[in-house]
């Protein structure tokens, strides 16, 4: 038996919205420690790794490990029926073929209950393992989203060049070029506005704008995003949850 109660339905809504355009369905792996997902997009360029730790939930129990195959579009439709501020409880019996979803309005005496049919998904997992990191940038997630959107008007690729004291985002396209430079900044009054850059080795990587557009759909999950970059390796884009994370691993482009 799995049962997890979210204080607010909005959290699961945001998680599903951030994932559903990249992968259509995935397995939710439920253990006593929480719920995790690993899923790769069809083109095998972008990998999503989600961890919702037990502490994220108002109440959580999982007596036995269960894997729930979920169609994210369908889940999104059902979750969309609840108000953001509702309590949201998901539950499933062991060997269940459906996921039970209950919304409780905190003010009105109203409870809405739905069942989502589960899918049998043949998971095709990748061993991500611990990765070395040459450069780490932390910046406001909204700023990163704007950079990606702004640069996308110019090119299908976004080049990220990190040096000791700056990160340069650059796009070169048919209509012209664009550059955005950000530098470390400590904002004591508004720590969420701070920018940090730590560097072991300079970085020059290019990523597909299309995939970055998918990644920034997670912006509402966290005020900050942490970008971990390593030469000739996938970039890691991490949005922290209250307890856990949503991470994207994006394969870089290469020069032909």
């Amino acid at each position: 038996m799995l049962e997890g109660k979210f204080e607010e339905a909005s959290l699961l809504k945001k998680i599903v919205e951030a994932m559903k355009d990249c992968v259509s369905s995935c397995n939710f792996n439920c253990t006593e420690n929480g719920i995790s997902v690993q899923a790769v997009d069809n083109s095998r360029v972008l990998l999503i790794s989600l961890l919702i730790e037990k502490d994220t939930f108002e109440e959580y129990r999982c007596d036995r490990n269960i894997t729930l195959g979920v169609g994210l579009g369908s889940l999104s439709k059902i979750i969309g029926n609840g108000a953001n501020s509702d309590y949201l409880t998901i539950s499933a019996d062991d060997d269940a073929d459906k996921l039970n979803i209950i919304f409780e309005d905190k003010v009105k005496d109203k409870i809405s209950e739905y069942n989502l049919k589960l899918l049998d998904i043949d998971a095709d997992l990748l061993d991500v393992g611990p990765m070395d990191t040459d450069a780490t940038i932390t910046l406001p997630s909204a700023d990163f989203a704007k950079i990606c959107k702004d640069m996308k008007v110019l090119s299908e690729s976004l080049q990220i060049i990190v040096t000791k004291d700056s990160a340069l985002f650059q796009s070169v396209g048919d209509i012209g070029t664009g550059n955005i430079v950000i530098r470390p900044k400590t904002d004591i009054d508004h720590p969420e506005e701070s920018v940090t850059i730590s560097l072991d080795k300079p970085i020059d990587l290019s990523f597909g704008s299309k995939y970055l557009s998918d990644i920034i759909k997670a912006t509402s999950l966290s005020q900050k995003v942490t970008i971990k970059l390593t030469d000739q390796s996938p970039g890691v884009f991490e949005y922290k949850l209250p307890s856990g994370y949503l991470r994207f691993y994006l394969a870089p482009k290469f020069d032909e």
Binding site: L46, L126, D127, A251, P252, K253
Partner: peptide
């Protein structure tokens, strides 16, 4: 010109 790499190049199947 640049091409897109696959994650399979970096991560092995589990």
């Amino acid at each position: 010109m640049s091409g897109q790499q696959s994650l399979n190049r970096f991560f092995s199947a589990r």
